[in-house]
């Protein structure tokens, strides 16, 4: 297991370096003078020149990159053009709301998705199965921002049960988490169903049934436990999808998270913040994939021996 862990960690390093090249290149890919873009449209020539020296933009490109890596290692992400606050502070404030939103969305998605998937797998071909699968493919096609607006319309504007947006109490979580998690729930339902059906056709399930294990035992112990292994992997991978989806859902519910910070920054052309956010999202995604792989290696010895 230790060898697998080391090998897997080592495999992440090139990806991380490549991601850092992308985010480093970001400011240089901007049309026009990067110093001018970072200093903002109202900056004087003197300020622009100061930014150029401060950011080492007058140095050779490889020196700039080494310095960038060094700064990233120390969480020095520069200052926002808009508020002049350190980017690390802005991101720090927005980090927890987004994390909680994705966690609760995932909880809802796993409960609904796996539950529905097992139900469909057990009653394969029945009306419940067919209805649920139509619902699942609709769920994948549903624009999350529209679902969010419709929920606001019903529960906030007409029924006045829940707040339209914002952050604080559990009521604020209900609609955003439901909205963000629904797409994932649909994916999970389809996947769990097919995993369940596949395992149900295995010889050991037939053996269990023929030796007289009660049907409930066949479903829960013999089939579901084995069907859940690929579902665990999917859950991890879908976390990345939730991170991406949060960007849109946070806009709908005026959620004070990383996604809305990113959109605001893009609209304001606040490049230091955009650069840091893109790096952060990619890092989180790589980290999650790493954790999933490690968990998978723990559950399935075949993988780590390869």
């Amino acid at each position: 297991m230790l060898e697998y862990l080391i090998r897997r960690l080592a495999g992440t390093i090139p990806v991380l370096l490549a991601v850092s090249v992308f985010t480093f290149a970001f400011v240089h890919l901007l049309p026009g003078d990067p110093a001018r873009m970072v200093a903002g449209p109202e900056a004087s020539l003197e300020q622009v020149n100061r930014v150029r020296t401060e950011l080492w933009l007058d140095r050779p490109i490889w020196e700039q990159y080494i310095r960038y890596l060094d700064q990233m290692a120390h969480f020095e992400l520069g200052r926002s053009i808009k508020t002049h606050e350190p980017v690390s502070k802005l991101i720090g404030e927005r980090f927890m709301p987004t994390l909680w939103l994705t966690v609760w969305s995932m909880v809802w998605a796993v409960i609904a998705g796996v539950g529905l998937g097992v139900l469909c797998g057990v009653r394969r071909g029945g009306w419940a199965d067919r209805t649920a699968m139509v619902a699942a493919i609709s769920g994948i096609s549903f624009p999350s921002f529209w679902l969010g607006l419709m929920l606001i319309d019903l529960f906030s504007v007409h029924l006045r049960w829940l707040p339209t947006g914002g952050y604080g109490t559990w009521q604020h979580f209900v609609m955003p988490a439901f909205t963000l998690g629904s797409g994932v729930a649909a994916v999970m339902a389809r996947f769990t169903r097919s995993a369940f059906i596949e395992v149900a056709a295995e010889d050991y399930v037939r053996t269990a049934r023929s030796k007289g294990v009660p049907e409930q035992g066949v479903i829960w112990t013999h089939t579901l436990r084995n069907a859940l292994i690929p579902v665990i992997t999917l859950t991890g991978l879908q976390f990345g999808f939730l991170l991406g989806g949060a960007i849109v859902v946070e806009t709908v519910f005026t959620w004070p998270g990383l996604g809305r910070l990113l959109i605001d920054s893009v609209n304001f052309r606040d490049y230091p913040v955009i650069q840091a956010e893109i790096l952060l999202f990619a890092l989180e995604f790589v980290l999650i994939n790493l954790i999933v792989d490690l968990l998978y290696g723990l559950v399935n010895p075949e993988i780590r021996l390869k």
């Binding site: 990806v15 991601v19 999808f241 960007i247 893009v266 893109i278 999202f281 990619a282 790589v286």
Partner: peptide, 11 residues
Amino acid sequence: LAFPGILPAIA
């Protein structure tokens, strides 16, 4: 592919 979902498009 390390940039999840809508993020590459936003970038």
